[in-house]
Simulated assay, not measured.
Amino acid sequence: MSSKQIGIEDARKRLGDLIDAAQQGETVILTRHGKPAARLTAYHQETTVPATPAQMDLNQAAARAIAIARENRDMSAAEFDYEIKIYGIGGPHGPIGQAVYTVANGHLPPVEPGDQTIDQREANWVELWEALQPELKAYERRCEARQFANWSHAARSLGKRIRYA
């Protein structure tokens, strides 16, 4: 497998050719001001997706759920961790619980009208939520132990974002 570097401006003009190269096994490194900024590689569909929570790596599933919840809340890691420090991980209907639903049912097609898998989706969600409790509680304890800067209402009113101390 070969690799080549190309500036972002040149890549814009040759995107189709670069995608063709990536599909042929070449790795294309996009550079900004001469420094690597991104990598373009061929997309490979995962062939095996865990179908049940029992088949999932729970540490990885917890990390995915936390990342999805952060993204859904449009928060930085520090802001999200601060919220967990203050309010805890919440229940299955909170932000992390909803993200667990996404992780538990990621292998199923999107819900369609008349979908008969609603009960199975609910069962997957509940099973994974319960299985992830040790990992999520450990994450909550790590957040509780963290120190944060700019966490006060006064700092936030000045437009300062919460960050790790």
Rank of each mutant, 00 (worst) to 15 (best):
residue 40 L to Y: 01
residue 108 L to S: 07
residue 43 Y to E: 09
residue 162 I to R: 11
residue 116 Q to D: 11
residue 65 A to C: 03
residue 138 A to V: 06
residue 155 A to V: 12
residue 143 C to Q: 11
residue 8 I to D: 03
residue 144 E to G: 08
residue 148 F to E: 05
residue 26 E to W: 00
residue 106 G to A: 06
residue 51 A to Q: 09
residue 112 E to K: 15
residue 89 I to P: 13
residue 117 T to M: 10
residue 60 Q to T: 00
residue 158 L to R: 15
residue 57 D to S: 01
residue 90 G to F: 10
residue 115 D to F: 09
residue 37 A to P: 01
residue 83 E to K: 14
residue 88 G to E: 07
residue 133 Q to G: 04
residue 16 G to V: 07
residue 41 T to V: 14
residue 124 N to V: 01
residue 142 R to I: 04
residue 10 D to R: 12
residue 127 E to D: 11
residue 35 K to R: 06
residue 36 P to H: 00
residue 37 A to F: 03
residue 156 R to A: 08
residue 90 G to N: 14
residue 18 L to Y: 08
residue 12 R to G: 10
residue 28 V to R: 04
residue 76 S to N: 13
residue 102 T to F: 05
residue 69 A to G: 09
residue 24 Q to C: 02
residue 54 A to T: 03
residue 154 A to S: 12
residue 99 A to E: 04
residue 158 L to E: 14
residue 138 A to K: 12
residue 31 T to N: 00
residue 110 P to N: 06
residue 164 Y to F: 15
residue 3 S to E: 14
residue 105 N to M: 04
residue 3 S to C: 10
residue 148 F to P: 01
residue 45 Q to V: 08
residue 83 E to V: 06
residue 141 R to H: 10
residue 36 P to L: 00
residue 110 P to L: 08
residue 81 D to A: 15
residue 34 G to P: 05
residue 65 A to D: 01
residue 72 N to P: 06
residue 92 P to S: 10
residue 21 A to Y: 01
residue 47 T to F: 07
residue 132 L to E: 07
residue 35 K to N: 02
